[in-house]
């Protein structure tokens, strides 16, 4: 009997120490990065010993590029052309930027301009380029309990949802979409609190599923919403077209000063490829077959130069 106890106790202790060991690791990371901004300002060459032998690139991006299927379409070209494997980590913009800050990713593809600029100012990144944009839409149930169908004024639409106390599901995860949503509430002068305001803390795909299930409103990027219509959803677009709903994506190379694991050369190659005209053309074509309209609008400097408006 006592042996059983001993074994159990050892197991419990071992497990808890092993687990706490795991969670302690990220705790160290912020301290390391806290020190780096001072050195980050000057560009540091990658040590030759650390030149990437195997071609693997870690791309931290938002769930929308992954959930919409864009990456599945464009990345294979890059991988084939350069013999590089791109490992995609699709998370909220908040975490994607944190991954960059901690030196856990080589390239970021995100959409939260204010946070991107802060990232660059802090010296975490060496290069930022415009890539493309899409827009946000407010989607909701066909019954439209708040009566906002057809509106083009996003803050006014949200205000009507709040007045009607119609269920609204928020991403609640500090993502680019959540940041955008908060800015629209602010523009509407409404503090969203109450039973009707559901903070889900999940990705766009999960929130759309939840809104469909609960017959609620939510703010979604158009790409993820359109991709969802293919699988069947009862949600319809109720408000679109407000300039506030504009959603630009940027690509950022993480500062190689963060550590020898950062593949700065590959990251630059990736950015050059992403903003090149052939790739931009491919982005412009993405979704046309399925939806009859593009999901993203290319917007790199090269593209703008080639297609003056």
């Amino acid at each position: 009997m006592s042996r059983q106890v001993a074994i159990l106790l050892i197991l419990v202790l071992w497990l808890s120490s092993a687990l706490s060991g795991c969670v302690a690791l990220p705790a160290l990371a912020p301290e390391q990065t806290a020190a780096s901004p001072t050195t980050a300002a000057k560009p540091m060459p990658v040590p030759p010993a650390q030149a990437p032998a195997a071609g693997e690139l870690i791309l931290a991006t938002t769930t929308s590029t992954q959930d919409s299927g864009l990456l599945d379409v464009i990345l294979p070209d890059f991988e084939k052309e350069f013999g590089v494997k791109v490992n995609v980590i699709a998370v909220g913009t908040g975490q994607a930027i944190k991954l960059g800050e901690d030196g856990n990713a080589d390239v970021l593809l995100v959409h939260a301009r204010a946070k991107e600029d802060a990232f660059m100012v802090a010296g975490h990144g060496t290069r930022r380029e415009d890539v493309m944009y899409n827009d946000f839409v407010i989607v909701g149930p066909q019954s439209d309990p708040a009566g906002i169908k057809g509106m083009t004024d996003a803050p006014a639409a949200l205000k009507k949802i709040a007045d009607a106390r119609a269920p609204f599901i928020s991403r609640g995860d500090d993502s680019g979409t959540h940041t955008k949503e908060k800015s629209i509430w602010q523009a509407a002068g409404v503090e969203p609190v109450g039973d009707w305001y559901i903070s889900a803390g999940q990705g766009m795909g999960a929130v759309l599923t939840m809104a469909n299930e609960q017959l609620a409103y939510t703010l979604s990027d158009r790409a993820t919403y359109l991709a969802r219509t293919l699988e069947g959803t009862d949600l319809v677009i109720v408000t679109e077209g407000d300039p506030l709903l504009f959603n630009p994506y940027g690509v950022i190379a993480v500062n190689p000063a963060k550590g020898p694991q950062i593949k700065a050369d590959l990251a630059n190659t990736f950015i050059d490829w992403l903003i090149s005209l052939p790739t931009q053309e491919k982005i412009a074509q993405f979704g046309v077959d399925n939806f009859g309209a593009p999901l993203f609008t290319p917007d790199s400097a090269l593209w703008r130069a080639a297609h003056p408006q």
Binding site: L19, S20, V23, A24, P26, A27, A29, P30, V91, G92, G94, Q95, I97, K98, L99, E101, G172, D173, D174, S175, G201, Q202
Partner: peptide, 15 residues
Amino acid sequence: LETRKGTFDLAIALS
């Protein structure tokens, strides 16, 4: 969620 948001301190505390 906290890990996704990048707020590791809170994630560790909860762990």
